[in-house]
Amino acid sequence: MMRFLRRYLWPRWVRSGRVLLGLLSVLAVLAIAVVAPVLAPHDPLAQDLSLTLRPIELRGVYPLGTDGLGRCVLSRLMFGARAAVLVALPAALGALLLGGGLGLAAGWLGGRVERAVGWLAAAWVAFPPVVLALLLVAGGSGVAMAAMLSAWPLFCRVLRAELQAVAGRGHVAAALMLGFPRGQVLWREVVPAVLPAALALLAWVAAGAVGLEAVLAFLDLGGAPDRLSWGRMLADGWEVVFLAPINLVAPGVVLFSVMAGLALLGDGLRGTMGLALPEARLADDAMAGDGP
């Protein structure tokens, strides 16, 4: 595996502009989420009712102004990154493990396992992801869990299709013939080949989870009413859009940049890491988790 990464992938995808741009924005959001308490100029929850709806004053006390309750927009944006990261990271990784595991198991073992996973995934995707997330939230799940549970079938479907494209290739049959145990063949010959798709999908699903978190917060579901989230800020800003447009524009722009960064990252990875399997049409429709 390591040799595979070092020799075959590293040089090409690092050079891609899209990957760099995406990585940069993702790392920036991660960093901001971690050091938000240090970086933020104000307590994001502190209300200053004497200074509500301030406009942008880059050198002022509130660089990006204040909202209807006099809270610092910039600080709230920084703390909002935490909500996004805390949803996107576990949701995307969990969906990769669950969906990817089931998809690979189904494709590799075939037979009953494949049929069972197929039916489960079919029943699961009967609900549009956002609807499923709403139902899960109503049933008491957290937002991250809801995002993960609505994204795993995507991993399942895409990785299973990728695996089927790879499994027919001669080097897989050759490894089986040489007497490698089946599990080892999966690890040595198949997983490296589907890895690019899985990583690209990971970025896309993370983007979808960020969007889903924003949507649920916008609708004020699945969390405290006064939570720190970009979606909440959008909803608050929507009410005062003509008085202080920055309250809507700032979270909108941030939300878009983060999702765009993740999408570019996924795109770049897919474009440059591919093993150029002619028969594998990579999941171009993979933005399925992309919330509403």
Binding site: R169, G170, H171, M177, L275
Partner: peptide, 19 residues
């Protein structure tokens, strides 16, 4: 099988692990 028989395939490109 592994000890007795080995096979070579028609598409050599696909039959060799690309990485």
């Amino acid at each position: 099988h592994a000890a007795t028989v080995q096979m070579v395939f028609d598409e050599a490109q696909a039959a060799l692990t690309p990485w």
